[in-house]
Design a protein around this nucleic acid. Sequence first.
DNA 1: CATGAATGAGGATTCATTCAT
DNA 2: GATGAATGAATCCTCATTCAT
Lengths: 179, 179, 179, 179
Amino acid sequence: MPALRSDAARSRARILEVARRHDPGALRLNDVAREAGVGVGTVYRHFPTTHALVEALTRDTLERLRVLVREAVAEPSPETAITNLLHAALDLQLEEGGLQPVLLSAEDEDDDVRAAKQEIGTGFEQVLVRAQAAGVVRRDLSTQQVEHLVCGMEHAVRLGAASDRGPYLEILLAGLRPD
Amino acid sequence: MPALRSDAARSRARILEVARRHDPGALRLNDVAREAGVGVGTVYRHFPTTHALVEALTRDTLERLRVLVREAVAEPSPETAITNLLHAALDLQLEEGGLQPVLLSAEDEDDDVRAAKQEIGTGFEQVLVRAQAAGVVRRDLSTQQVEHLVCGMEHAVRLGAASDRGPYLEILLAGLRPD
Amino acid sequence: MPALRSDAARSRARILEVARRHDPGALRLNDVAREAGVGVGTVYRHFPTTHALVEALTRDTLERLRVLVREAVAEPSPETAITNLLHAALDLQLEEGGLQPVLLSAEDEDDDVRAAKQEIGTGFEQVLVRAQAAGVVRRDLSTQQVEHLVCGMEHAVRLGAASDRGPYLEILLAGLRPD
Amino acid sequence: MPALRSDAARSRARILEVARRHDPGALRLNDVAREAGVGVGTVYRHFPTTHALVEALTRDTLERLRVLVREAVAEPSPETAITNLLHAALDLQLEEGGLQPVLLSAEDEDDDVRAAKQEIGTGFEQVLVRAQAAGVVRRDLSTQQVEHLVCGMEHAVRLGAASDRGPYLEILLAGLRPD
DNA sequence: CATGAATGAGGATTCATTCAT
DNA sequence: GATGAATGAATCCTCATTCAT
């Protein structure tokens, strides 16, 4: 990827800045363009699809998740690791509405996104398996299932107040324990 | 409400039958009309708004939920009651995709729907309070929060396979227990 | 015309009563039917076209105009005759919004309406000609032109307050005088 | 307002050209688009509402009226001024069917239109007041009332032949004189 | 006769996407 | 590269009129 021309970089930044103020599930490219003070075409040049824009929006959050996964992998205590990780995942998903679609999407536009998701998935799996081996989490659950449960919790929180996050996470963690 | 004329009843039935084959969240009235072999106007006559149609679609399911709530209220064991009820709620929501929107909607088009939701809500509350008093469910949760959790579980199941329902429900029930 | 069955007469009366509460220029037959508590079909049976309904609505007013025209024809003073007549015409048109369309329409649905319009037209012509002969009204105007002027005045009054009627009529009468 | 791109200008011109061939009171945007050989969206881009299109259609005529009002204001003879002005107003309204709605509308989409109407109204008022002071026009009439009378005359002419314009205007002018 | 369900053309409006400038 | 005008399918909804019941 060649370095972006300075004006192109500015456009890109403005687009992202504006897009972040919108509901990721209902991005109107024309609106974003107008508010960002650029032409629609410019938006399409930078982000060929809506999904590409959403990916870009989640980039930082995805990166933070990757770091947190690494930390969880490095964490000696299996229980602390899985606890922290689920906590982090839920927090980040709630913080950045576009994250869930990006994580769940089978197709990634951006290679960095794919790589990040790849590492996140693998790390998550390690943490989960270790927790299961340690008897902290039911053995009959796949990584994907746990991820879906986190998404379900995000959904539940979004139906009510943000403060529900705490209890819901406790419920999830308690529920995941064997027996 | 006068009894429906036979032809009107047939139209209504056809519309509902067709609508049931569509995603409740993306009902295109024109499509429904065409597939049902009736004019658009007919659809609008029977269902002034999309929500009215969704309500009609969920009518039976809502009724079944009402009955199940009554049974749960009548059930002597607090634990069995809440278990059965959550089970039923999740099952029905998964069976009928339009149920969650109807349950969550603040405005009801149909009076029967409102009455049903009213009774369901009250019954649910009773069952929950009893379970909390019996020490089967955390005391810090409101009825609404538990309902949201069920919706979250529905969401989680929909992201994967229908067979996830069992484990997820167990997780929810286990997670709801105090301590 | 055979005597109407009592229920038919009642329907007709109800329809007219309701229709009178609507803007004659924007009659929605379905609305009228619903508000009148009859089926649309009934409205169509009584009034095959919207115009037929408007004619029926104006029937009484048309009759009153006919009487006033007769009085004007009988009035000895040419000036008083034309003055009273224009006054009456404008008043009635303002009172009954459907009157202008009926008077201007080339096609009449109802024979009585045609007869009334016929007599009104003839009488109006007589009154006007006499006024012109007496030097009270410009000689270069046809009956139709004067009628159009009255319609124009109605239009002008409708753009503002009903109280404009007085001055506008004076202006019309003054303007019609020769020289 | 940036200068219009040449292609946009062409579209705009075509739309206006086509719209001018329609009854201003019954503009069907889809029809206009089709006849103009442009997409519906293009019409909406240029003219967000039907009224905006009508305003654009009347732009030139409105401008001509503005000029004529200025001339009337500059005219030394109060009588000539009001005579010419009423003449001009009636002529232009008859020429451009959309003018009356634009003049009467309380809300203007375009700032130039508002400014033009503003100046026209003020100038008209000056000319009228001067005519009243000179004893050429009844003192009991407001500007708005005189405007409504012109609209009434337009209506009257439209009911018959265009050649009625002359006599009707004379009648109006004569009628407006005091006593 | 009365009913009112059904019709479906008609009209308004939006928005993702393309492409000429 | 950037622009934003143009596109037009898609969708919604209304209402005058017909006709089966």
